[in-house]
Design a protein around this nucleic acid. Structure first.
Length: 401
RNA sequence: GCGUCGGUGGUAGAGCGGUCAAAUACAACAGACUGUAAAUCUGUCGCCUACGGGCUACGAAGGUUCGAAUCCUUCCCGACGCACCA
Protein backbone atom coordinates (compact mmCIF):
# COMPACT_ATOMS: atom_id res chain seq x y z
CA UNK A 1 0.00 0.00 0.00
CA UNK A 2 1.39 3.32 -1.04
CA UNK A 3 1.27 6.14 1.44
CA UNK A 4 0.76 9.63 0.12
CA UNK A 5 1.24 11.36 3.43
CA UNK A 6 2.24 14.86 2.34
CA UNK A 7 4.35 15.43 5.40
CA UNK A 8 6.40 12.32 4.84
CA UNK A 9 6.75 13.08 1.18
CA UNK A 10 7.88 16.56 2.00
CA UNK A 11 10.44 15.23 4.44
CA UNK A 12 11.73 12.92 1.76
CA UNK A 13 11.97 15.67 -0.80
CA UNK A 14 13.71 18.11 1.49
CA UNK A 15 15.75 16.76 4.27
CA UNK A 16 19.39 16.24 3.43
CA UNK A 17 18.65 16.70 -0.25
CA UNK A 18 21.14 18.48 -2.42
CA UNK A 19 19.21 18.42 -5.68
CA UNK A 20 16.41 16.63 -7.46
CA UNK A 21 16.32 16.22 -11.20
CA UNK A 22 14.57 16.83 -13.47
CA UNK A 23 12.61 18.65 -10.78
CA UNK A 24 11.09 18.38 -7.40
CA UNK A 25 7.65 18.67 -8.95
CA UNK A 26 8.27 15.77 -11.29
CA UNK A 27 9.28 13.62 -8.38
CA UNK A 28 6.46 14.75 -6.17
CA UNK A 29 3.96 13.93 -8.88
CA UNK A 30 5.37 10.44 -9.19
CA UNK A 31 5.13 9.93 -5.47
CA UNK A 32 1.54 11.11 -5.46
CA UNK A 33 0.54 9.00 -8.44
CA UNK A 34 -0.25 6.01 -6.27
CA UNK A 35 2.07 3.83 -8.28
CA UNK A 36 4.62 1.64 -6.60
CA UNK A 37 7.92 3.18 -7.58
CA UNK A 38 11.14 1.30 -7.92
CA UNK A 39 14.07 3.29 -6.59
CA UNK A 40 17.63 2.23 -6.09
CA UNK A 41 20.93 3.13 -4.56
CA UNK A 42 24.13 1.75 -5.98
CA UNK A 43 27.01 0.80 -3.72
CA UNK A 44 30.46 -0.33 -4.69
CA UNK A 45 31.26 -3.40 -2.65
CA UNK A 46 34.88 -2.41 -2.36
CA UNK A 47 35.40 -1.96 1.35
CA UNK A 48 34.29 -3.93 4.35
CA UNK A 49 32.15 -1.20 5.84
CA UNK A 50 29.56 1.32 4.96
CA UNK A 51 30.23 4.77 6.29
CA UNK A 52 28.12 7.58 7.49
CA UNK A 53 27.95 9.02 3.97
CA UNK A 54 26.18 5.91 2.76
CA UNK A 55 23.88 6.20 5.72
CA UNK A 56 22.60 9.52 4.49
CA UNK A 57 21.44 7.97 1.23
CA UNK A 58 20.15 4.90 3.02
CA UNK A 59 17.97 7.13 5.16
CA UNK A 60 16.33 8.45 2.04
CA UNK A 61 15.67 4.91 0.92
CA UNK A 62 14.19 4.12 4.29
CA UNK A 63 11.77 6.99 3.93
CA UNK A 64 10.62 5.65 0.58
CA UNK A 65 10.39 2.16 1.91
CA UNK A 66 8.11 3.43 4.63
CA UNK A 67 5.95 5.04 2.02
CA UNK A 68 5.54 1.59 0.49
CA UNK A 69 7.81 1.83 -2.50
CA UNK A 70 10.02 -0.82 -3.93
CA UNK A 71 13.64 -0.36 -2.93
CA UNK A 72 16.68 -1.92 -4.54
CA UNK A 73 20.12 -1.88 -3.09
CA UNK A 74 22.41 -2.46 -6.02
CA UNK A 75 25.83 -3.91 -5.51
CA UNK A 76 28.12 -2.60 -8.19
CA UNK A 77 30.17 -5.73 -8.29
CA UNK A 78 30.83 -5.35 -11.99
CA UNK A 79 31.54 -1.65 -12.01
CA UNK A 80 33.75 -2.03 -8.95
CA UNK A 81 35.89 -4.43 -10.90
CA UNK A 82 36.50 -1.87 -13.58
CA UNK A 83 37.42 0.85 -11.15
CA UNK A 84 35.95 4.23 -10.68
CA UNK A 85 37.51 7.05 -12.66
CA UNK A 86 37.61 9.18 -9.57
CA UNK A 87 40.60 7.34 -8.26
CA UNK A 88 42.80 8.56 -11.04
CA UNK A 89 45.18 6.02 -12.41
CA UNK A 90 44.94 3.70 -9.51
CA UNK A 91 43.64 0.48 -10.82
CA UNK A 92 41.48 -1.00 -8.24
CA UNK A 93 42.42 -4.41 -7.10
CA UNK A 94 39.92 -6.85 -8.37
CA UNK A 95 37.72 -8.37 -5.79
CA UNK A 96 37.12 -12.05 -5.64
CA UNK A 97 33.56 -13.22 -5.44
CA UNK A 98 34.32 -14.38 -1.92
CA UNK A 99 35.35 -10.91 -0.87
CA UNK A 100 32.28 -9.45 -2.48
CA UNK A 101 30.09 -11.94 -0.68
CA UNK A 102 31.81 -11.09 2.57
CA UNK A 103 31.43 -7.36 2.03
CA UNK A 104 27.83 -7.82 1.11
CA UNK A 105 27.13 -9.70 4.29
CA UNK A 106 28.63 -6.85 6.28
CA UNK A 107 26.78 -4.22 4.29
CA UNK A 108 23.54 -5.97 4.81
CA UNK A 109 23.86 -6.16 8.55
CA UNK A 110 25.01 -2.56 8.69
CA UNK A 111 22.33 -1.26 6.34
CA UNK A 112 19.71 -3.20 8.23
CA UNK A 113 19.95 -0.58 10.97
CA UNK A 114 18.33 1.84 8.56
CA UNK A 115 16.43 -0.06 5.91
CA UNK A 116 14.57 -3.29 6.29
CA UNK A 117 15.40 -6.49 4.47
CA UNK A 118 12.47 -8.31 5.95
CA UNK A 119 8.75 -7.98 6.36
CA UNK A 120 6.16 -7.13 3.78
CA UNK A 121 8.16 -4.81 1.65
CA UNK A 122 11.76 -5.86 1.97
CA UNK A 123 14.64 -4.16 0.24
CA UNK A 124 15.82 -6.16 -2.71
CA UNK A 125 19.51 -6.69 -3.34
CA UNK A 126 20.76 -6.92 -6.90
CA UNK A 127 24.13 -7.23 -8.54
CA UNK A 128 24.98 -5.42 -11.70
CA UNK A 129 27.30 -8.17 -12.78
CA UNK A 130 24.10 -10.10 -13.50
CA UNK A 131 23.50 -7.99 -16.55
CA UNK A 132 26.70 -6.11 -17.27
CA UNK A 133 28.76 -9.26 -17.02
CA UNK A 134 26.64 -10.94 -19.65
CA UNK A 135 26.78 -8.31 -22.33
CA UNK A 136 28.70 -9.14 -25.44
CA UNK A 137 30.48 -6.67 -27.63
CA UNK A 138 27.47 -6.11 -29.81
CA UNK A 139 25.47 -5.17 -26.75
CA UNK A 140 28.20 -2.82 -25.69
CA UNK A 141 28.23 -1.17 -29.08
CA UNK A 142 24.50 -0.77 -28.99
CA UNK A 143 24.85 0.86 -25.61
CA UNK A 144 27.67 3.09 -26.79
CA UNK A 145 25.65 4.27 -29.73
CA UNK A 146 23.34 6.00 -27.31
CA UNK A 147 25.86 8.52 -26.14
CA UNK A 148 28.45 10.69 -27.77
CA UNK A 149 32.09 11.06 -26.94
CA UNK A 150 31.37 14.69 -26.24
CA UNK A 151 28.80 13.76 -23.65
CA UNK A 152 31.10 11.35 -21.96
CA UNK A 153 33.96 13.80 -21.98
CA UNK A 154 31.81 16.61 -20.73
CA UNK A 155 32.57 15.55 -17.25
CA UNK A 156 34.64 18.11 -15.38
CA UNK A 157 37.22 15.68 -14.26
CA UNK A 158 37.91 14.49 -17.76
CA UNK A 159 38.12 18.04 -19.04
CA UNK A 160 40.59 18.81 -16.37
CA UNK A 161 42.65 15.79 -17.12
CA UNK A 162 42.64 16.55 -20.82
CA UNK A 163 43.77 20.08 -20.09
CA UNK A 164 46.55 18.75 -17.89
CA UNK A 165 47.53 16.21 -20.51
CA UNK A 166 46.71 13.44 -18.17
CA UNK A 167 45.26 10.20 -19.45
CA UNK A 168 41.61 9.46 -19.85
CA UNK A 169 41.04 5.82 -20.60
CA UNK A 170 38.25 4.57 -22.73
CA UNK A 171 36.90 2.30 -20.07
CA UNK A 172 36.79 5.19 -17.66
CA UNK A 173 34.79 7.22 -20.10
CA UNK A 174 32.46 4.28 -20.49
CA UNK A 175 31.81 4.09 -16.81
CA UNK A 176 28.74 6.33 -16.89
CA UNK A 177 27.23 4.13 -19.58
CA UNK A 178 27.77 1.04 -17.50
CA UNK A 179 26.27 2.57 -14.46
CA UNK A 180 23.57 4.19 -16.50
CA UNK A 181 22.60 0.85 -17.94
CA UNK A 182 21.77 -0.34 -14.47
CA UNK A 183 18.74 1.91 -14.55
CA UNK A 184 17.59 0.32 -17.78
CA UNK A 185 18.20 -3.20 -16.62
CA UNK A 186 16.10 -2.61 -13.54
CA UNK A 187 13.64 -0.20 -15.13
CA UNK A 188 13.71 2.07 -12.15
CA UNK A 189 11.63 5.12 -11.41
CA UNK A 190 14.28 6.87 -9.42
CA UNK A 191 17.81 6.78 -8.16
CA UNK A 192 19.47 8.18 -5.09
CA UNK A 193 23.14 8.85 -4.71
CA UNK A 194 25.85 11.20 -3.64
CA UNK A 195 26.54 14.35 -5.52
CA UNK A 196 29.59 12.74 -7.04
CA UNK A 197 27.27 10.30 -8.76
CA UNK A 198 25.16 12.95 -10.42
CA UNK A 199 26.70 12.61 -13.83
CA UNK A 200 26.40 8.86 -13.92
CA UNK A 201 22.88 8.98 -12.61
CA UNK A 202 21.88 11.41 -15.31
CA UNK A 203 23.37 9.14 -17.92
CA UNK A 204 21.05 6.47 -16.62
CA UNK A 205 18.21 8.85 -17.06
CA UNK A 206 19.15 9.49 -20.68
CA UNK A 207 19.38 5.81 -21.43
CA UNK A 208 16.11 5.15 -19.72
CA UNK A 209 14.43 7.82 -21.79
CA UNK A 210 15.45 5.91 -24.90
CA UNK A 211 13.32 3.15 -23.49
CA UNK A 212 10.40 5.46 -23.02
CA UNK A 213 10.74 5.92 -19.31
CA UNK A 214 11.86 8.81 -17.16
CA UNK A 215 13.29 8.59 -13.70
CA UNK A 216 14.08 11.08 -11.03
CA UNK A 217 17.55 11.52 -9.69
CA UNK A 218 18.11 12.67 -6.17
CA UNK A 219 21.46 13.63 -4.79
CA UNK A 220 21.98 13.83 -1.07
CA UNK A 221 24.10 16.31 0.78
CA UNK A 222 27.51 15.47 2.01
CA UNK A 223 28.46 16.05 5.56
CA UNK A 224 30.69 19.09 5.45
CA UNK A 225 31.79 21.78 7.79
CA UNK A 226 30.84 25.41 7.39
CA UNK A 227 33.57 26.05 4.85
CA UNK A 228 32.46 23.11 2.78
CA UNK A 229 35.34 20.87 3.61
CA UNK A 230 34.29 17.30 3.20
CA UNK A 231 34.40 15.09 6.16
CA UNK A 232 36.60 12.11 6.12
CA UNK A 233 38.93 13.10 3.39
CA UNK A 234 41.63 11.60 5.48
CA UNK A 235 39.40 8.79 6.69
CA UNK A 236 40.47 9.74 10.17
CA UNK A 237 37.12 10.89 11.39
CA UNK A 238 34.98 9.03 8.91
CA UNK A 239 32.52 7.07 10.94
CA UNK A 240 31.86 3.63 9.58
CA UNK A 241 28.66 1.96 10.54
CA UNK A 242 30.37 -0.94 12.23
CA UNK A 243 32.60 1.20 14.43
CA UNK A 244 32.30 0.42 18.09
CA UNK A 245 30.36 2.86 20.22
CA UNK A 246 33.54 4.24 21.77
CA UNK A 247 35.22 4.77 18.43
CA UNK A 248 32.14 6.44 17.03
CA UNK A 249 31.92 8.76 19.97
CA UNK A 250 35.53 9.79 19.58
CA UNK A 251 35.28 10.30 15.85
CA UNK A 252 32.17 12.39 16.12
CA UNK A 253 33.69 14.53 18.86
CA UNK A 254 36.54 15.30 16.52
CA UNK A 255 34.21 16.59 13.85
CA UNK A 256 34.55 20.31 13.60
CA UNK A 257 31.86 22.36 15.25
CA UNK A 258 30.58 23.45 11.87
CA UNK A 259 29.43 19.94 11.17
CA UNK A 260 27.09 19.68 14.10
CA UNK A 261 24.00 21.06 12.45
CA UNK A 262 24.55 19.09 9.27
CA UNK A 263 25.18 16.02 11.36
CA UNK A 264 21.81 16.33 13.04
CA UNK A 265 20.04 16.98 9.80
CA UNK A 266 21.67 14.23 7.81
CA UNK A 267 22.40 11.52 10.30
CA UNK A 268 19.58 11.60 12.80
CA UNK A 269 15.81 11.69 12.84
CA UNK A 270 15.59 14.65 15.13
CA UNK A 271 12.93 16.96 13.80
CA UNK A 272 13.96 19.86 11.68
CA UNK A 273 12.44 22.24 14.19
CA UNK A 274 14.64 20.93 16.90
CA UNK A 275 17.69 21.05 14.67
CA UNK A 276 16.86 24.66 13.97
CA UNK A 277 16.67 25.37 17.67
CA UNK A 278 20.06 23.85 18.20
CA UNK A 279 21.47 25.96 15.43
CA UNK A 280 20.04 29.10 16.95
CA UNK A 281 21.23 28.17 20.42
CA UNK A 282 24.77 27.80 19.19
CA UNK A 283 24.57 31.07 17.33
CA UNK A 284 23.61 32.62 20.61
CA UNK A 285 26.77 31.41 22.17
CA UNK A 286 25.75 28.11 23.68
CA UNK A 287 28.58 25.66 24.06
CA UNK A 288 28.64 23.47 20.97
CA UNK A 289 30.25 20.65 22.89
CA UNK A 290 27.04 19.57 24.56
CA UNK A 291 25.32 19.39 21.20
CA UNK A 292 28.15 17.46 19.71
CA UNK A 293 27.85 14.98 22.53
CA UNK A 294 24.16 14.74 21.93
CA UNK A 295 24.78 14.18 18.23
CA UNK A 296 27.22 11.43 19.01
CA UNK A 297 24.71 9.80 21.33
CA UNK A 298 21.95 9.97 18.76
CA UNK A 299 24.07 8.41 16.06
CA UNK A 300 25.39 5.69 18.31
CA UNK A 301 21.88 4.90 19.44
CA UNK A 302 20.94 4.27 15.83
CA UNK A 303 23.77 1.87 15.13
CA UNK A 304 24.18 0.35 18.54
CA UNK A 305 21.76 1.23 21.31
CA UNK A 306 21.14 3.83 23.94
CA UNK A 307 22.95 2.23 26.90
CA UNK A 308 26.04 1.81 24.78
CA UNK A 309 25.81 5.39 23.68
CA UNK A 310 25.69 6.57 27.26
CA UNK A 311 28.54 4.27 28.22
CA UNK A 312 30.61 5.60 25.34
CA UNK A 313 30.06 9.13 26.52
CA UNK A 314 31.05 8.22 30.08
CA UNK A 315 34.15 6.57 28.88
CA UNK A 316 35.07 9.46 26.69
CA UNK A 317 34.50 12.02 29.41
CA UNK A 318 36.46 10.00 31.87
CA UNK A 319 39.41 9.85 29.52
CA UNK A 320 39.51 13.26 28.01
CA UNK A 321 37.67 15.62 30.27
CA UNK A 322 38.82 14.18 33.57
CA UNK A 323 42.18 12.87 32.48
CA UNK A 324 41.38 9.38 33.59
CA UNK A 325 41.99 6.02 32.03
CA UNK A 326 39.52 4.48 29.63
CA UNK A 327 37.96 1.19 30.57
CA UNK A 328 39.53 -1.16 28.11
CA UNK A 329 43.21 -0.50 27.66
CA UNK A 330 45.22 -2.76 25.39
CA UNK A 331 47.72 -4.80 27.31
CA UNK A 332 51.12 -6.15 26.48
CA UNK A 333 53.42 -8.23 28.60
CA UNK A 334 57.16 -8.16 28.97
CA UNK A 335 59.89 -9.10 31.43
CA UNK A 336 61.49 -7.11 34.26
CA UNK A 337 64.23 -4.73 33.24
CA UNK A 338 63.27 -4.52 29.59
CA UNK A 339 63.80 -1.13 28.09
CA UNK A 340 60.57 0.66 27.43
CA UNK A 341 61.86 1.81 24.07
CA UNK A 342 62.25 -1.80 22.97
CA UNK A 343 58.87 -2.96 24.20
CA UNK A 344 57.03 -0.17 22.59
CA UNK A 345 58.77 -0.40 19.22
CA UNK A 346 58.67 -4.16 18.85
CA UNK A 347 54.99 -4.06 19.71
CA UNK A 348 54.56 -1.43 17.01
CA UNK A 349 52.95 0.96 19.41
CA UNK A 350 55.50 3.50 18.32
CA UNK A 351 56.79 3.36 14.76
CA UNK A 352 60.51 3.62 15.40
CA UNK A 353 63.05 4.38 18.06
CA UNK A 354 63.56 7.80 16.57
CA UNK A 355 59.93 8.52 17.00
CA UNK A 356 60.05 7.29 20.57
CA UNK A 357 62.91 9.68 21.31
CA UNK A 358 60.96 12.51 19.81
CA UNK A 359 57.94 11.69 21.91
CA UNK A 360 60.13 11.69 25.00
CA UNK A 361 61.51 15.09 24.00
CA UNK A 362 58.02 16.38 23.54
CA UNK A 363 57.00 15.14 26.95
CA UNK A 364 54.34 12.96 25.44
CA UNK A 365 55.10 9.76 27.29
CA UNK A 366 53.74 9.40 30.76
CA UNK A 367 53.15 6.76 33.37
CA UNK A 368 49.82 6.85 35.10
CA UNK A 369 49.97 6.91 38.88
CA UNK A 370 47.31 7.05 41.58
CA UNK A 371 47.80 10.75 41.94
CA UNK A 372 48.00 11.62 38.28
CA UNK A 373 50.65 11.08 35.73
CA UNK A 374 54.39 11.29 35.59
CA UNK A 375 56.41 12.19 32.55
CA UNK A 376 59.12 9.85 31.41
CA UNK A 377 62.17 11.87 30.48
CA UNK A 378 64.74 9.13 30.25
CA UNK A 379 64.97 7.42 26.89
CA UNK A 380 66.47 4.43 28.64
CA UNK A 381 63.60 3.97 31.03
CA UNK A 382 63.38 0.33 31.90
CA UNK A 383 60.40 -1.52 33.20
CA UNK A 384 60.51 -2.62 36.82
CA UNK A 385 56.85 -3.28 37.49
CA UNK A 386 53.53 -3.20 35.71
CA UNK A 387 52.55 0.24 34.49
CA UNK A 388 49.92 2.00 32.51
CA UNK A 389 51.54 4.08 29.86
CA UNK A 390 50.01 7.14 28.30
CA UNK A 391 51.29 8.36 24.98
CA UNK A 392 50.00 11.72 23.88
CA UNK A 393 46.52 12.24 25.18
CA UNK A 394 44.65 9.42 23.69
CA UNK A 395 46.82 6.35 23.62
CA UNK A 396 46.93 4.12 26.65
CA UNK A 397 48.83 0.90 26.97
CA UNK A 398 49.05 -1.38 29.92
CA UNK A 399 52.42 -3.02 30.26
CA UNK A 400 52.47 -5.94 32.62
CA UNK A 401 55.08 -8.40 33.62
C1' G B 1 57.81 3.37 -35.38
C1' C B 2 59.77 8.48 -34.70
C1' G B 3 59.93 12.66 -31.50
C1' U B 4 59.07 15.37 -26.90
C1' C B 5 58.29 15.51 -21.82
C1' G B 6 58.14 13.01 -17.30
C1' G B 7 58.89 9.07 -13.06
C1' U B 8 61.01 12.83 -6.03
C1' G B 9 58.95 11.50 0.94
C1' G B 10 51.73 9.18 3.17
C1' U B 11 49.58 12.48 -0.95
C1' A B 12 50.07 16.71 -4.18
C1' G B 13 54.25 19.17 -5.89
C1' A B 14 59.31 22.24 -5.95
C1' G B 15 64.41 21.28 -6.71
C1' C B 16 67.93 20.29 -12.01
C1' G B 17 76.09 19.45 -9.82
C1' G B 18 77.84 20.91 -3.55
C1' U B 19 74.56 25.13 1.32
C1' C B 20 69.37 18.46 -0.12
C1' A B 21 67.04 13.92 4.40
C1' A B 22 65.31 17.32 -0.09
C1' A B 23 61.00 23.98 -0.56
C1' U B 24 55.75 24.39 -0.01
C1' A B 25 50.80 22.60 0.91
C1' C B 26 47.73 18.77 2.82
C1' A B 27 47.59 14.62 5.99
C1' A B 28 49.83 12.67 10.48
C1' C B 29 52.06 13.18 15.47
C1' A B 30 53.23 16.10 19.93
C1' G B 31 52.90 20.52 23.08
C1' A B 32 50.23 24.97 24.66
C1' C B 33 45.57 26.83 25.09
C1' U B 34 40.39 25.50 25.37
C1' G B 35 34.37 24.12 25.69
C1' U B 36 36.15 18.54 23.16
C1' A B 37 40.36 14.36 20.29
C1' A B 38 36.72 21.38 17.52
C1' A B 39 39.20 26.00 16.32
C1' U B 40 43.84 28.61 17.03
C1' C B 41 49.09 28.89 18.00
C1' U B 42 53.94 26.34 18.38
C1' G B 43 56.97 22.30 17.39
C1' U B 44 57.95 17.50 15.05
C1' C B 45 57.45 14.61 10.81
C1' G B 46 63.56 8.52 6.74
C1' C B 47 66.29 5.01 9.98
C1' C B 48 70.05 4.32 13.83
C1' U B 49 72.69 6.93 17.58
C1' A B 50 77.38 6.70 23.08
C1' C B 51 73.61 13.11 20.32
C1' G B 52 79.71 14.07 17.99
C1' G B 53 77.55 11.90 14.02
C1' G B 54 76.52 7.46 11.04
C1' C B 55 73.49 4.94 7.39
C1' U B 56 69.80 4.33 3.52
C1' A B 57 66.85 7.19 0.07
C1' C B 58 64.67 11.12 -5.28
C1' G B 59 61.83 4.55 -11.28
C1' A B 60 66.24 0.40 -12.01
C1' A B 61 71.26 -0.69 -13.18
C1' G B 62 75.79 1.23 -14.51
C1' G B 63 79.07 5.59 -15.48
C1' U B 64 81.33 10.82 -15.30
C1' U B 65 82.92 13.85 -11.03
C1' C B 66 86.58 15.46 -5.14
C1' G B 67 81.06 15.56 -4.96
C1' A B 68 74.80 13.55 -8.35
C1' A B 69 67.80 13.83 -6.88
C1' U B 70 70.40 17.03 -10.28
C1' C B 71 75.06 15.33 -15.96
C1' C B 72 75.82 10.73 -19.37
C1' U B 73 74.46 5.50 -20.99
C1' U B 74 71.20 1.46 -21.02
C1' C B 75 66.75 -0.48 -19.30
C1' C B 76 61.67 -0.32 -17.22
C1' C B 77 57.11 2.52 -16.76
C1' G B 78 53.85 6.62 -18.21
C1' A B 79 51.96 10.81 -20.85
C1' C B 80 51.75 13.79 -25.05
C1' G B 81 52.68 14.93 -30.32
C1' C B 82 53.62 13.13 -35.22
C1' A B 83 53.24 9.19 -38.64
C1' C B 84 49.92 5.19 -39.82
C1' C B 85 44.73 3.97 -39.99
C1' A B 86 39.65 -0.28 -39.67
Amino acid sequence: MISQDPQKINEFLQRGVESILPSREFTEKKLLSGEVLTVYLGIDPTGPSLHIGHAIALKKLAQLQNLGHNIILLMGDFTARIGDPTDKLATRKTLTSDQIAENLKNYKSQAAKIISFEGENPVEIKFNNDWLGKMNFADVLELCSQATIQQLLERDMFQKRIAEEKPVYVHEALYPLMQGYDSVAMMVDGEIGGNDQLFNMLMGRDLLKNHGKDKFVMTVKLLTDASGTKMGKSEGNMVTLDDSADIMFGKIMSWTDGMIVGGFELCTDISRDEVLQIEIAMQNGENPMQYKKRLAREIITTYHNEPEAIAAQDNWEKTFSDGGIPTDVPEITTTVGTMLIDVVTTEKIVESKSEFRRLIDEGAIKVMTETGEEKITDVKYSIQHSIILKIGKKKFIKISL
